[in-house]
Amino acid sequence: MALCNLCEEHEAVVWRRYSGVRLCKSCFTQSIEQNVKRTIRRHAMISKNDRIALGLSGGKDSVSIMHLLNQITENRPDIELIAITIDEGIKDYRNESIPIAEKNAKQLGIEHKIVSFKETYGYILDDLLVLTKSQKRRLKACAYCGVFRRSLLNRAARELGATKVVTGHNLDDDVQAILMNFMRSDIERESRLGPKTEPRHSKLVARVKPLREVPEREVALYALLNEIEVHLGECPYAGESFRQVIRNWLNEVEVKYPGTKYSILRGFDKLLPTLKEKFGHPPLQECKYCGEPTQYKVCKACELLQKLKT
C-alpha cells in the first residue's frame, strides 16, 4: 500500500509519474482546486461582476469545471454562473449527456439553457451528415460540429448577457490542438490558441479555459472520487477525426515519457507571445448573412450552410 506523499497518512489514489508524487483522495482534490485557481489568477480569467457562461455538455470536463467554479466563486456574490448546453443532434450520445448536464446544474442551482443546431441552423448533425454524404461532399463530422458549436456557444452566451465563456478544455485537449495546428502548418490558428481569447469584436465574448493545466485523466479522476455524475460516452464520430489519431499517439508517448504533455504546453506558452506579435489579429467584420463576427465576408457556419443548398 502506497501512502500519500503530502499527508503521509492516507492511501494514494493517484501516482503522478510526471512529478513522481503520489496523492490520496483529499490531497489530490485539493491539488486540482489549487491548479484551477492558479490558472484563473495567472491569466486573470475572472473579473469583478462577471456573468460567466459555462459550455456544459454533461461530459467529465464541463461538469467538473462547473462544480469547481461553483465552489471557487462561492463567496463572490458579484459573480454569476450560467450553463449553456449545445444539442448538436447526435443520437446515442448527446441525448444521453443532456440529462446529466441538467441534473448537475439543478443540483448546484445554476441557470441552464439548452440551444440546438436544429433550431439555429435547421439541421441536427446526424441528418446534416447524411445529406452531405448523399451530395457526395461530406466533410468530417468535426468540421461541421466544431464550427457550429463554437459559433452557437458564443451567440447564446452573448444573448444571455455573459461577459465570459468558460470551456472545459483540459491539458490533453490543448496539447492535441497545438500539435494538430502545427502538423497542418496552420500557425495563424496556433497563435489564437491560448488560455484566454480576448474578443476581437463587440459580438464576441472572451473565452477562458481554467482546466488547461489539468491532465484529462485527472479531470475524470476528480469527478469519480468526488462522486460527481458525468457522461463518459464516446461521440460516434470521434473515430473519423484527426484529433483521435493525435490523442492515441500522445497517450502512448506520455506513458513512455511522462511529462511530455506538460512540456509541449510549456514550450507553446513560450512561443505564444511571439506568434501573437507576428500574426497580430485584425478586427473582425460581421457576416453578411447572419451578422456573426467573422474574418471574411461570410462566416464559416454560413459558408457550410450555403454549400448544402447549392
Binding site: A220, L221, L224, L232, E234, C235
Partner: peptide, 8 residues
Amino acid sequence: IIRVITGG
C-alpha cells in the same frame, strides 16, 4: 477498468 478517455 473504467475507460475515462474517449473521443468527444
